[in-house]
Design a protein around this nucleic acid. Structure first.
Lengths: 223, 223
DNA sequence: ATATGTGAATTGATTCACAGCG
DNA sequence: CGCTGTGAATCAATTCACATAT
């Protein structure tokens, strides 16, 4: 019986943002490994699956504890449990989606998101378009129902996926409800008070980086 | 006549990736300013519009030249022209979109993308679903037409927005055509040869970061 | 033996502080 | 003077190299 595996809780060190982003990749890789029935995995393989160097894997995990068995790698289930706890994927987080277009739909469709620990409590139209209609199992509500929705369903985060010219209005409405954070897909630079955590995801900057690094092929070799 | 503004071309220094991402934000801010008829802007204001510190604005621009007028800020049109050139937004870049779902639609709808220097030459279904149908003005083609499409239309980049279980197949097909880069929205870690530039955009990692930083509010104050 | 855990060294990015120009 | 441009200093992140555990 080679598998006992040490778990440990660590006093928090400074964790780089980039490390958090990578933890998510390890989480997914581990979910795949578990689905395949794998019991153990070594840092090197986990790194390959996440396309990250081994040293990252080890250091990133090490910010939070000692999850591996020297000489034997990591026990998949144990590491998965710990990563889920670290990333908050053990409790359920209530969110509301603002927007009814293709982008909002794409988000609602994301299996890995809606399946588990993220619970979409409602879909709200900022501009009023589509109110009352059905969108992937959610009845689209008007913006003036947002506050009560957030309160009664304990919504923690708002996912902003509306049109650009409605983005700030939507963000303001979210801020008023006392939400904890906003995931902003609109590409608009939002004005929000300091205590609201805003995470921005741009669909466009990726294509710009692609073009830039193609034009300037001499700069920055590929990672 | 206080406006003459110096332009300069610089021997390339090492440009941080994060700086490239920020340049895109400056570009959009400047486009907005120009639409408002503004002639001049100072680094500080540009920084506010892009939600970046002033020092970033100055240093980022400075990697590429001297575009400002000391004491007077930047001439909007001149800086815009230069940024467009730096980011490759003066020439047209041909792309193909792989996928027909909500995500693919969301990408096709992005005005700022399709409007100008990015030209979507075709939409291809990886799994075969939707072939022949019309998707926002594009006839959906089967995967076996990808190679000829890329060749005849000089497609430079592939935008991968299909289902997860089709992602690697789509990527392989793109690689075979001799494309220069892939913008990967699928969340799958792609296996691709070194010379293909892959930019990954994850819809999910943002929500994970949001949850993480809410759970660990003590770590990392907001930027 | 073999792979993890981790301080130390290195590399890279951000911030500072002031020189220099309009 | 005010604001840009930029080297120098600080701070953060990555990589190395080896001690450590099984």
């Amino acid at each position: 019986m080679p598998q006992a595996a040490a778990t440990a809780e660590k006093p928090r060190k400074e964790v780089p943002t980039s490390a958090v982003t990578r933890l998510v990749k390890y989480l997914y890789a581990l979910q795949d490994l578990e689905a395949q029935g794998r019991e153990r995995v070594m840092a090197a393989e986990l790194g390959e699956l996440a396309n990250e160097p081994v040293t990252h894997v080890r250091k990133d995990l090490n910010y939070f504890g000692r999850f591996g068995v020297p000489g034997h790698g990591y026990h998949v289930r144990i590491l998965l449990t710990n990563l889920e706890r670290i990333l908050g994927a053990t409790s359920t987080w209530e969110v509301v989606v603002l927007g009814t277009g293709a982008l909002a739909q794409a988000i609602l469709e994301e299996e890995r998101l809606t399946g588990k620990h993220i619970d979409v409590k409602g879909v709200v139209s900022v501009g009023g378009a589509g109110v009352g209609e059905e969108l992937l199992g959610h009845r689209v509500r008007p913006l003036n129902e947002l506050a009560s929705l957030v309160q009664t369903d304990h919504v923690k985060f708002g996912i902003l996926a509306c049109a650009q010219d409605e983005a700030q209005e939507g963000a303001d409405a979210l801020v008023m409800t006392g939400i904890a954070g906003i995931l902003n897909f609109t590409g608009v630079v939002l004005k929000a008070p300091r205590h609201i955590h805003v995470e921005n995801v741009s669909l466009l900057s990726g294509v710009h980086r692609l073009v830039f690094y193609h034009k300037h092929r001499d700069l920055r070799p590929m990672p």
